[in-house]
Design a protein around this nucleic acid. Sequence first.
DNA 1: CCATTTATATAAAACGTTTAGCTCGTAGTA
DNA 2: TACTACGAGCTAAACGTTTTATATAAATGG
Lengths: 341, 341
Amino acid sequence: MVRIKKTPSKTVSIEDVARLAGVSITTVSRVINKFPSVKEKNRLKVLGAIKELKFSPSIFAQRLATGKSNVVALVIPRYEGVFYSFYVLELIRGIGTLCDVFKLDLLLHLTDARSGLDLRGIGGVIFADIIGNRHQLEAALKQGLPSVVINNYAEDIDASCIAIDNAGGAENAVNYLVSLGHKRIAHISGDLSTQAAAGRYEGYRRALKKNNIKERQDYVFKTDYSRGQARAAAENMLKLADAPTAVFVASDAMALEVMSVTREAGRDIPGDLSIVGFDDNPSGLYGPVALTTVRQPLIKMAEESVKELNRLMTLKKNITPKKVLLPTELIIRESCRQLGG
Amino acid sequence: MVRIKKTPSKTVSIEDVARLAGVSITTVSRVINKFPSVKEKNRLKVLGAIKELKFSPSIFAQRLATGKSNVVALVIPRYEGVFYSFYVLELIRGIGTLCDVFKLDLLLHLTDARSGLDLRGIGGVIFADIIGNRHQLEAALKQGLPSVVINNYAEDIDASCIAIDNAGGAENAVNYLVSLGHKRIAHISGDLSTQAAAGRYEGYRRALKKNNIKERQDYVFKTDYSRGQARAAAENMLKLADAPTAVFVASDAMALEVMSVTREAGRDIPGDLSIVGFDDNPSGLYGPVALTTVRQPLIKMAEESVKELNRLMTLKKNITPKKVLLPTELIIRESCRQLGG
DNA sequence: CCATTTATATAAAACGTTTAGCTCGTAGTA
DNA sequence: TACTACGAGCTAAACGTTTTATATAAATGG
């Protein structure tokens, strides 16, 4: 057993440093906070004492004295869906990495959405999603906490929003299908009460309209993003007498399910049906045919949100929130084919 | 624009509460900390004042005064692999949920493994993995911080370990293949410098031995867990003159890759090759054949780690660390078949 | 060389809690 | 009645910083 001997827990304070260095407490504080008005000679003495005593200032005392906190709360609704996982993790990764850069402490809040949020001691908040927890956002704003909302674009709220251009991405995807010669293009949507799903649906319609293709109600299948409903939608779609030659699916997770169903029905992808998904979930790379999809810049979105939050936290004044819409990228792989080739 | 008006930022202190309630500061503090020795009448007065003033105690002042912190740092090496994602996210989810229950603040540390860790103000640490950051663990122990290591079982370190019985799980998987009549069973391992991969390999060997099957060196393929090496391993395995009828793969991510390669080679699963994976990654459910796999109790492991950390943080004394090995579960789906049926 | 500014250091107050030690009633006991 | 015990409240010190107002030393100008 490797017993690591603990250092005696008596904390060394700024006072000990001052005594050893032969200067006042204030001077030590100035050195720590990089004030210019300290003579070089003293600065070195203090630095030496700090190193010798292995001193590091108590963040609690600092925060109590300054009233400032560099703790960022990342609020994530307690999710369930497994495929949601890729999305959330990328977000966490991007945010965590940049918090490191900005020397911010990242506090994770997996919340119930209904429940209140304990924001004591928090310096800023990132909401990963405000489908369910808009009142939490409002509570944060009321406290005067800098707040950033990820992936939910709203002009009407006094917080910064960093989101993805869902409609634009969807439009590109459908345009691509049209460019391959498809005219009978279906859409399997996600939960339309979410902004993402609604935007994707809107982009689908916009593309049809611009290409003078009439939207058919029987080509639109509304789901709740679940695998089960995706499967059902796909089955119904395939049963159609006048079945579509292509489908734009609102998420890769669902697109994978649609591919399974299609193959089970004995049809070929992309021979009989072209598919485009949304997300660029790496799972789309497996299976016999790699999925063509719309890539969301998740890491970029995460990073932008931390940058923006840091801006809000640093600047003293009440500063106008920023609204950012990030572009997507169409990733062409193997699940679509040229029609009438 | 919904401008939410901020509450004036003057903080209300325990003193204000005391004044309004007509009692002393001490009494208010006692009420907050649920001391029994406060007259019911006063308790109610204080509670009323707290509610009226919307008072909530400053955690920084509390922590400074008590010297205690209920902040838990979750240290995760900055990972890359995408399929790693499911594993990490489940861990975060389990840990986050239980921290909520225990009223612990969860601080996320995505670390470089090489770099030092700033543990100021932290009350306990959970290491999600100590492949690379053993010195960080030792630093935490040296500071006397309660520490728990997840999924890395080591008797020789003075921290609690909550891990998964990799060897046992692997042994079960291979036993299952044997029970289906397989004798030519290959193994595609992960990075054997990791405890998980080494354990799985060991379980494979143990099962062969117990079933009197001789281990063949040409049936063992060592990889670094990457998709690329899994693909190469699978190609080599299929080329074998005396090809195996079954393979146990050290991760679902790699197993999926192996399935792709096998199908590309024109062979059927499970007709020509039975496959068992490890992880119970939901991605294994897609594709034409659902993957049989060994499920790791990730959520349970996460929860146990928080429980254990909470125990260490609560108990005053130097308490002996706990070493836990959690059992796995074989999930039988469609990727294996009875041989000679 | 004195007067005036400027650079540097200091002591003390503030931040908002907890907690040890003390006091004061009040009730029970002898 | 006097003594003990005890519950309940109070005062003041402590926690480890930052910061304001103030003092001192050094530098500049005439």
